[in-house]
């Protein structure tokens, strides 16, 4: 008799496999903190900027780095894994066993979310210790917004995985969506400093809304309800599309 539950066995196996993906671990967990360290080492990044409401660039980038981790996980790492499993017939083969292949998807989503959480902790600790970045003032709103942003980004990845017919195409489309998402998150240029129509467009995307709301929580402001609605709305619509169009083989 085996004592391990099938689901627990799937989670354990996928955890091992995840730990063997050193590329994913680097880009999701370490790279965002490395970015904060690089920016924090530039003296001008450490001076209050009136365009950013008196915040320093390194403060703003601490939130951006968390979103970067979320984007890496949801657009670059996870879709490739799931599409690869589908293409190799792993999901199909699981359908012939008592274990639902959905447990594999949930395990992967959970593991990538955990990696994001580890990255977030690393960014906050290193920022606080090395560059005196303030910890989020409103920790509850911060948690809610990280959750919403993760859900929205993962649903983008899910739609790509569901709609693209091959693993190769999943990766190509993931990369194409990756760069605008980074732009919207404020990786190249702080969203707070964007003006006019560009700002309007950016904050109506999931990552644009996330970066604004996350920054609000960091400084202790109640986030704008519109930003929350934008993230939630995208999540609902994209998840529905993904669930309806996903194929196991």
């Amino acid at each position: 008799m085996s004592t391990a539950s099938p689901t627990a066995a799937v989670i354990r196996t996928e955890s091992r496999l995840f730990s063997r993906e050193l590329g994913s671990v680097f880009w999701i967990v370490l790279f965002p903190t490395i970015l904060v360290v690089i920016l924090g080492s530039v003296p001008s990044m450490n001076e209050p900027d009136p365009n950013l409401g008196g915040q320093r660039l390194v403060d703003v980038y601490s939130s951006v780095a968390v979103l970067l981790s979320i984007i890496m996980a949801s657009l670059m790492a996870m879709p490739a894994v799931i599409a690869g499993y589908r293409e190799a017939g792993i999901l199909r083969r699981l359908r012939t066993t008592p274990v639902h292949p959905g447990s594999l998807l949930l395990a992967q989503a959970g593991l990538h979310a955990l990696a994001v959480l580890a990255s977030l902790a690393l960014v906050l600790v290193v920022g606080r210790v090395a560059y005196d970045v303030r910890l989020p003032q409103d920790i509850w709103w911060y948690a809610v917004i990280v959750l919403l942003a993760t859900a929205a980004a993962f649903s983008i990845g899910a739609v790509i995985t569901a709609l693209a017919p091959s693993a190769r195409l999943v990766q190509t489309i993931g990369t194409i969506v990756f760069f605008p998402s980074m732009f919207a998150a404020g990786v190249y240029f702080p969203v707070q400093a964007m003006q006019g129509w560009l700002h309007t467009v950016v904050v109506s995307t999931p990552m644009g809304a996330a970066t604004e709301a996350l920054n609000d929580a960091v400084v202790g402001r109640t986030p704008d309800l519109v930003d929350l609605a934008v993230m939630a709305g995208w999540t609902v619509v994209l998840s529905l599309v993904a669930v309806r169009s996903f194929r196991w083989e």
Partner: peptide, 24 residues
């Protein structure tokens, strides 16, 4: 099944253990 592969980085032992956990 025909043309059915496993996770590329899964070892043979891990695959066998995983499948063992699936059944009563």
């Amino acid at each position: 099944l025909q043309e059915s592969r496993m996770q590329p980085k899964l070892t043979v032992r891990e695959a066998l253990e995983l499948w063992t956990a699936f059944y009563d």
